[in-house]
């Protein structure tokens, strides 16, 4: 395996996408398939997995130490990135995308590549809808907000029942696990779980399939290497939607 030291990149632009989400644009192109991720090194803090929202950017929600440190950075500051890692979304034919919150980020490269026909986008409230305008220009967009401030009043999952799933060869999904589990339940009910492609979130340390931190039950699949995208039939009867392991490897309920 060839050397993969983190590349130093300079942040050239910071875009405030929503009150809690920012895009960090950097000065190096990372050739990747839609849905692949990089390990982002915030010097002196930590290294965390982030999907590429474009070959030049990551789009980040502030949730803890490393993301807060990123939010404190300015244009001209440097971070490290290694990757791309993981399998990404492999689609053909007609594609439906379902994104919740910052989960729209790994789906954006599919939209940019013109591979998405219909996009169901959900968020807590109207101002948190991520990439709404960019998606609207490239796909049929349907919106849901938990508080009803835009689009359907309720969960994005409910929009899935309003489209004809038979119309789509692939259904690409990323968002909070509760939301993804609900989408999987709909697909399973309709008998098309295998057409769902779900991008999972598990605690990652190495990103290259060695340390075991991101392994899932019951097949021991590594989210960083065998995933992060798994088809729905693989996730049925798995830990998905039930529990995940934390940094120490202890199980935590989802």
């Amino acid at each position: 395996m060839h050397e993969q030291m983190p590349a130093g990149v300079t942040i050239t632009e910071i875009v405030e996408e929503t009150p809690s989400i920012r895009t960090f644009v950097f000065d190096r192109e990372i050739e990747a398939r839609p849905g692949q991720f990089v390990m982002v090194w915030v010097p002196g803090v930590d290294e965390v997995p982030m999907a590429l929202s474009s070959p030049f950017s990551i789009t980040v929600q502030k949730v803890g130490d490393a993301t807060a440190a990123l939010f404190a950075m300015h244009e001209g500051d440097r971070i490290g990135v290694r990757g791309p890692y993981g399998n990404g979304f492999a689609v053909s034919g007609r594609t439906l995308a379902v994104g919740g919150g910052v989960g729209a980020s790994p789906l954006l490269p599919l939209v940019t590549a013109g591979l998405v026909d219909t996009f169901l986008l959900g968020a807590r409230t109207a101002s948190e809808l991520l990439f709404e305008n960019r998606i609207r220009g490239a796909a049929t967009l349907m919106v849901a907000t938990d508080d009803g401030t835009a689009g359907h009043h309720g969960f994005v999952t409910e929009l899935v029942s309003r489209v004809d799933l038979a119309d789509f060869d692939h259904i690409c999904v990323c968002g909070p696990e509760i939301m993804m589990t609900a989408v999987l339940a709909v697909l399973d009910r309709e008998g098309c779980a295998e057409r769902g492609l779900f991008s999972l979130h598990r605690y990652m340390k190495c990103g290259v399939g060695l340390c075991g931190s991101c392994c899932t039950d019951p097949h021991g699949l590594r989210v960083c290497r065998d995933g992060p995208v798994f088809s729905g039939d693989v996730l049925l009867d798995s830990e998905f939607g039930h529990y995940a392991r934390d940094a120490s490897g202890s199980r935590r309920r989802i």
């Binding site: 060839h2 983190p6 090194w41 290294e47 340390k205 060695l210 340390c211 120490s248 490897g249």
Partner: peptide
């Protein structure tokens, strides 16, 4: 239980791998 060292914990180099995981483990729960 130990969470291990902050990242980067592992880097792939020419001919090998350098790691400093910091012995993350769930202890008795294992």
């Amino acid at each position: 239980p130990k969470e291990g060292h902050p990242g980067p914990c592992l880097v792939v180099v020419d001919g090998g791998i350098i790691n400093a995981m910091g012995l993350p483990n769930p202890s008795a729960a294992f």
